[in-house]
Computed example of a mutant assay.
Amino acid sequence: MSPVNPGASAKEVLIIKLSALGDFVLSLGAMKAVRETHPSARITLLTTPFFEEFGKLCPYVDRVETDGRPEGMKATAALIQRIRKADYDIIYDFQTSGRTKNYFTALSRSGKAPLWSGHHEKAAFFHDNAERGRMHSIDRLAEQLEVAGVPPEGRWLGTSAPFPDLSWVRHKLGDTPRLQPAYFSLEEPYMLLIPGASAHREAKRWPEENYAELASRVADAGIQPVIIGGKAEGPLAHEIVRREPRAKSLVTRTDLFQIVTLAEKALFVVGNDTGPMHMATLAGAPGIALFALTESNPDHAAPRGPKQPVIINSAPTLKELSVDDVWQSVRALGLLPA
């Protein structure tokens, strides 16, 4: 007998999503679909400490547990025991990593295996697609949900893809001063520069001198260039501002919620293949994403946005991508002052 999704009768549901930032925000549409499928359930998100605050405000989950990556056998055993004791009606593994597959294996060793949606051959809802690793995260999650019996209706633009929606951020937090551009002494129009990427993958970083030249052209057009990122982007931002003093650095000054609300009012955003770039375009900023083809395939990892398609600029490595190429894409957005 084929397994059946408990749907509206479910009382306890678990979603597993541990990281990384881009993948996490891309999974928000799938989390919303789970919420709609189980309207009366208490939905728990198993994640990592970085996403605790964001998860607690997310309207698709009711509680957050942050020990999704326990250290050591004792902590792992405690996590497995807690999940088993919770007796979830269904578990959605949106991480689908070797670690989370091992969680299912451990849960299945004694007693009845939980009703599980993920990439495990013994799962009730096994997403058995050899091409899943080459699918865009949104499309892969859509297919995983369909295998699990989550109905596709009501999704973005009439497709089956569970498109992430970040409009809840401002609604949940209220339109407070810290969510306004003026909090950072910004006036519109402004745009966002996102120069960060994995430090160990240099090919994915567009050179800071190119960002500085782009910032100069943007500032000449009467638009404030604003740099966002974390601590690792500090040296990059410092060099960009040194070369182009009209650029403003907000590096380390924005939390995840402020990235969303700044992007909502930004004229456009230009950035590397990195998590904040996904957040900015999902929040509604028209975007230009820079991809190193030797490192990642935009067909599988390109940011998406609700307003218009994101323009992709690519080269084998980002050092080979010229400022003129990116500037041409900026002009193609049709947003520059006449």
Score class of each variant (00 low, 15 high):
K85H: 12
D87R: 15
D87Q: 09
D87W: 03
Y88N: 00
D89T: 07
I90P: 00
D93N: 13
F94S: 05
F94L: 15
Q95P: 03
T96Y: 01
S97C: 10
R99V: 07
R99K: 10
R99L: 15
T100V: 13
N102A: 14
F104C: 03
T105N: 14
T105P: 01
L107V: 02
S108E: 09
S108P: 00
S110M: 13
S110C: 11
G111H: 05
K112F: 01
P114T: 06
S117Q: 10
G118P: 08
H119W: 09
H120W: 06
K122N: 09
A124K: 12
F125Y: 08
H127K: 05
N129Q: 14
A130Q: 14
A130P: 08
A130T: 11
E131V: 07
R132N: 02
G133W: 07
D139E: 11
E143V: 11
Q144H: 10
Q144V: 12
E146F: 06
V147M: 07
A148R: 06
A148S: 14
G149C: 08
P151G: 04
E153I: 06
R155Y: 02
W156E: 14
L157G: 10
G158T: 07
P164I: 01
D165A: 05
L166W: 10
S167H: 09
S167A: 11
K172C: 08
L173T: 10
L173Y: 03
G174A: 05
